[in-house]
Amino acid sequence: MTSNRSAHAALILVDVQPDFMPGGALACHEGDAIVPGIDALLRARRFRHVVATQDWHPPGHVSFASRHPGRAAFERIDLYGQPQTLWPDHCVQGTAGAELHPGIDWSALDAVIRKGSDPAVDSYSGFRENHGPDGSRPSTGLAGWLRERGVDEVVVCGLARDVCVLWTAQDARELGFRASVLWDLSRPVTPTSDAATRAALLEQGIGIV
């Protein structure tokens, strides 16, 4: 790790998976554009700790529009008292679209946090699942893993900037970590969300790098 990053900082790579790339099941706007930059960043070994999150849904997941007759992808419903976007079937466990992107050298990776494995609960953040039937947001264990290694700052990038990257950075801040987002190494589902995403990050004191 080079001296330009604190020894107490970790890089979190959110859902850099083929299903979120153009041609994938849930394509983000220009999602593939971040792959070369993330590969170069990992090869540079600038961070002592590197974690990837991986969307990892069972077939028939509650967030899939196909699970809800008469509903279409990107509609919103009420689920456990919270708004839930219905998504196209994506990142189904064991499929090629759910794998970490093959165009990246992942050898610097220390840990992978698989999320969204509960068929009844969605999971955007790398730190906590979305609200479940009991109203709680169960931990993924990432916060404890980072604290055990002395990490107090996280730098987040990946997909999608307006959903899982945003939620991961927000949860990091709420859980006591300093947080920033690498804007150029993230992409949104749709760029119309960018202004709202920037405002949400700045409101919580999350850096935009």
Rank of each mutant, 00 (worst) to 15 (best):
W106E: 04
G94M: 14
D78E: 15
I104F: 05
D89F: 11
Q82C: 14
G70H: 00
I104S: 09
L79W: 13
P88S: 01
A72M: 15
Q82D: 15
R71E: 05
A65L: 00
G103F: 03
P88M: 12
P102I: 12
T85S: 09
T85D: 11
A98I: 03
H101E: 04
E75R: 05
A73N: 06
S66N: 02
L100S: 04
P69D: 02
L79H: 13
P102E: 06
T85Q: 13
R76P: 11
R67W: 10
L79Q: 14
P83A: 05
A96M: 10
P69I: 02
R71N: 05
P88Y: 07
A98K: 02
P69E: 03
E75T: 04
H68D: 01
S107C: 13
G97A: 14
Q82L: 14
G94S: 06
D105C: 14
D89M: 12
T85K: 05
G81L: 04
A73T: 11
E75C: 15
C91M: 02
Y80Q: 12
G81M: 14
I77T: 13
Y80S: 11
Y80T: 08
F74T: 06
S107D: 08
C91I: 06
Q84G: 09
E75P: 07
W106Y: 01
P83V: 03
I77A: 03
S107T: 14
A72L: 15
A65I: 01
Q93N: 05
D78V: 15
G94L: 07
Q93H: 12
T95E: 07
H90T: 05
Y80H: 10
A65H: 02
A72Y: 12
E99V: 12
G70K: 00
S66A: 10
Y80K: 06
F74C: 11
H68P: 08
L100A: 04
R67H: 13
G103A: 07
H68G: 01
D89L: 10
P83M: 11
Q84A: 10
R67D: 03
Q82A: 12
Q82V: 14
Q93R: 10
H90E: 10
A73V: 12
F74A: 03
V92F: 00
P88V: 01
A72P: 14
P83N: 05
G70C: 00
I104N: 00
Q93P: 00
S66I: 01
G103W: 11
Q84S: 11
W106I: 02
S66L: 10
Q84D: 06
H90L: 00
V92G: 03
H101W: 05
P88R: 09
H68W: 01
D89Q: 15
R67F: 11
W106N: 10
I104T: 04
S107P: 12
W106A: 09
F74Q: 14
L86S: 05
P83F: 09
P69G: 04
T95K: 08
H101Q: 03
S107Y: 10
G94Y: 01
Q84E: 00
L100C: 07
I104E: 04
E99F: 10
F74Y: 15
Y80R: 11
A96G: 08
H90V: 09
D105F: 04
A72V: 13
I77C: 07
A98R: 06
D78N: 13
G81Q: 08
D78Y: 12
H101T: 07
P83H: 02
